[in-house]
Computed example of a mutant assay.
Amino acid sequence: MMTLLEPASLARLTFLLLALLTLTAVPMRPLTGAVAYLVLWVVLLRFPGPYADDVAITHAALFFFLGRFLPLRAALCLGAAVPLATVVLATPPTVVLYLFLLACTLPPGALLRRRESTLRQEISAGEERLEAVRAEVAREMHDLVAYSMSQTVLRARSAAADPSYPEDVRQELHAISATAADALHELRLVLRVLRRTQAGSTLEDPSATSQTVVVGLDAALQAVADDLSASGFSVTLRSTDEGECPRLQAVTLSRVAREMGSNIMRHGTTDQSVTITLAKETNQVCLVMTNGTSPNPAHDLPTSGTGLLGMRERLAAVDGSLSTREEDGSWTASAVVPLEPPPALSPEIPP
C-alpha cells in the first residue's frame, strides 16, 4: 500500500515501524502504549513526507486493542483522539476513514472484554460454589464418618483388651482397631486439606498431609501384604533396595499399593497366590502386583468403580503411570514412578 503512489521513503518506513512497535505495547501496557501511539500519530501528522494513510491498518488494530484492554469510556476517549488530531492537523476528508475504522473495530474489542469479564465472574461464582461444597463435605465427613470410625476404633480396642475373648479373636480385634485408627487418621488429614482449601490456603508440599501416615515404602507394602494374608490370600513380597525413594514418591506408591490391595480383596481369588514386587532402580521405582481373578471373588465387598482412575490420578501428579493386564485368569497391575521430582507439581493430591 505504501508503494501505490510513490516508492516508500525512509521516513515513511520509520514511522510505520515505530507505529508497529508502540502498537505491540498496548496489550501489555494498554494506557501507556495507547498514549505513546497517539503521540507518534501527532508527530507523523506534523512531519513532512509521510502519509497519514500509511498507518491506517495499525489504527484499526489500535482501536480493537483499546476496546479489548481498556474500559469503554477510556477506549472511546483515546480512540476519538485519532480523528480529532486529524481534523486539527491534517485534511478533514481522512477523518471519515478513521471514524469508520473506529466504529468497526472498537466494538468487537469491547464485546470481547465484556465476555471475558463475564467468564471471570462465572468462574469466580463456580469457585465459590465449589468451596461451599468442600466445606459441606468436610462437615458431613467429620460429623458422620469420623464419628463412626472413632466408635469403631474405641469398641475394637475395648474388645481386644477383654480377657474373656480367645487370643486369636483378640488379635483380630486388635488388627481391626489398628486399621480403623489408620483410616481415621487419614480421614482427618483429608478433612484438613478440604478446610485449608476452603480457607484459601495451599500446601507447599503435596506430601505434607501424609508424612505421619507412611513411615517407609517397604513398611507400607508389608502392611498391605499382612492385610491380604489376614484376609486369606497367600502373599509373596519381593523388594530390591537399590536406591532411596523420595518421600513424595513413597507416599504416592504406598497409597497406590493400598488401593491395589483393596482391589485384590474385592475381585481376587484365594486359589492363586498374590505376588507383590517392588523394584527400586536408579531413576525410577516400579511396583507390580499380580493376583488371580475369578467370577466369584473371595470377598463380596462393595466397589465404587473409580479405583483405577484414582491410582492414575495419583501417579500422574508425580509423572508416574499405571498399566494393567488380565491374561489367563491372572490380573497384573504395574505402577512406575520416576525418582526425579516433576518440574511443576499440582497443588493438591486427590484424597
Rank of each mutant, 00 (worst) to 15 (best):
S164R: 07
R120F: 07
L154C: 08
R129V: 11
A146V: 00
M141Q: 12
L130K: 13
R139T: 10
Q151H: 08
A161W: 08
Q151M: 07
R129G: 13
A125H: 08
S164M: 02
V145E: 08
S148E: 10
S124C: 14
A161Q: 10
Y165M: 06
A132C: 07
V153T: 02
A146E: 06
T118K: 10
A161P: 00
T118M: 09
A146M: 05
R157T: 08
Y147L: 10
S164V: 05
E122T: 09
G126L: 10
D162C: 11
A132D: 13
D162I: 03
E140Y: 09
T118H: 12
A125W: 12
P163E: 00
R120A: 08
L119W: 13
S148L: 07
S164F: 06
R129E: 12
Q121P: 05
E122Q: 13
V137P: 02
A125N: 06
S148R: 10
E122A: 11
R129K: 13
M141L: 13
A138W: 03
R120S: 05
R120H: 14
S148Y: 02
L144P: 08
L119V: 08
R120N: 12
M141R: 15
Y165C: 09
E136R: 06
S124R: 15
M149V: 04
V153P: 01
Q121S: 14
A161Y: 01
A138H: 08
A159Q: 01
R157L: 12
M149A: 05
R120T: 13
V137R: 06
H142C: 06
A125V: 02
S150Q: 14
L144G: 04
A160K: 00
S148K: 12
V137A: 11
R134I: 04
V137T: 14
A138M: 01
I123R: 15
E128Y: 14
A138R: 05
L119D: 12
L130P: 03
A132F: 02
E140S: 15
